[in-house]
Design a protein around this nucleic acid. Structure first.
Lengths: 230, 230
DNA sequence: GATATAATGTAGGCTTGCTTACATACATCG
DNA sequence: CGATGTATGTAAGCAAGCCTACATTATATC
């Protein structure tokens, strides 16, 4: 029962569902399922025909894409409350990206049929969904474009700024990044290599921009990081 | 009158408008305007609040984006029949890209109000529009991702393959690229520099992959170009 | 607690392709 | 038809960062 309540709580806090009435929340609740997710698990993967859509309720998930040449790029790191996998709900097609759990948590699942049934009862929902997809694609396009013309230092600084939005916690001595990514993850996030990321992170530390506090990164000077990202 | 007929002809050949009846074509015709475009002219530019949508009827247009650092990237080279500028029709916002004419021609213009009036009379049109926007964004995302992990040679080869779709004309000795881009244009298309493009094009020529036939590029071996792009 | 696996640290060599600089060819317009 | 702007050709120097290789340190699993 407390789990049920928490599920509703999470759903209510999503912009896209904000205008729903109590009756509709009960419907949404009825049509969706909840599941635990474990670090390393793939929720869906590139090439599959999975057409569910998901809401991340607890934990963290990365959205990755494997290029033909074998490079893995991380398109997004999702934080709690994020809807994902929605691209195939309105228009079914093969997944062109994978969703991989990077921190244990919980997801809420709704399959396409359930969504369509639900959608019919809530006029305007699919329109909002479309706008959300548009916005996400636009964000993603700009993020990738940034990678084209910046040095590794600048890209890493930008990555920090992006991550702070979702995982940053203000602190006396800066902002704590409340998520643990490996150097390989950072590399995939900025289209660089593990070794270069290690070196750059250590340079940032030496320069007093960041600090390592028991496996989390502390952004000591957000201003300097911002300046670095231009 | 012949011009009017030609306008209708072009509109009828667009997928998105294919299912319209004669009555609706007359409406579309009434609500839209035609204009000549000259090489170098900007149809709309980044940052403006222009919310028309356009159809290219003759000539060629490039869609470019200027990064904060001053790099110009060409996101797309449009060929005849292409709808463009439609991103702001459904959801008005600032242009985040510019449309620049690279070959004299003609465009068909419809402003947002006119489109909305028209759209109300043709159920399903805005849905098709949405799908088209989705598809374009997806294409664009993949194109940019390709730029991240490939060498200049590979990127240039890929650019040729893309351009052939829209501007390629089969020939005895290969495929003629029926569009004239400057080396700077190619550079902006693949996120490289003018000098490097010049050198790479000449290398391609020396290797027998392409040829320069009175200012147009002839792809002599599409297979080799394909192999190069992997 | 022992072992295996994953993550991080460090460094040298090497390559791509960007920069800078200048020369030549071509086009456009009065 | 000359003049000016635009496009192309060429080359040397240089730097970012990738690749390879290996050492060390965490973390997970039993």
């Amino acid at each position: 029962m407390t789990q049920e309540r928490s599920k509703l709580w999470y759903l209510k806090n999503l912009d896209i569902f904000r205008y729903l009435g109590d009756e509709e929340y009960k419907l949404l609740d009825r049509y969706s399922n909840m599941r635990e997710i474990k670090k390393g698990e793939m929720i869906y993967f590139q090439g599959s025909s999975d057409s569910n859509f998901y809401i991340l309720k607890k934990g963290a998930v990365k959205i990755t894409k494997l290029t033909p040449r074998g490079n893995e790029i991380i398109l997004d790191i999702l934080s709690v409350g994020t809807i994902f996998g929605e691209m195939t709900v309105l228009e079914p097609r093969e997944r062109d990206e994978s969703a991989i759990v990077i921190e244990d948590g919980l997801i809420c699942i709704m399959n396409r049929d359930e969504f369509n049934r639900f959608s019919k009862m809530v006029p305007g929902l699919s329109g909002k969904m479309t706008s959300m997809i548009e916005l996400k694609r636009w964000n993603r396009e700009n993020k990738i474009l940034d990678l084209l013309y910046c040095t590794v230092e600048q890209r890493l600084a930008k990555a920090f700024i992006n991550l702070l939005d979702d995982f940053g916690i203000p602190h006396d001595n800066g902002h704590l990044l409340q998520i643990r990514l490996t150097h390989k993850d950072y590399a995939d996030l900025i289209a660089s290599t593990r070794e270069t990321v290690t070196a750059t992170l250590n340079k940032f530390k030496a320069d007093g921009l960041i600090d390592f506090e028991n496996k989390y990164i502390m952004i000591k000077s957000l201003d300097k990081i911002r300046g670095m990202a231009e």
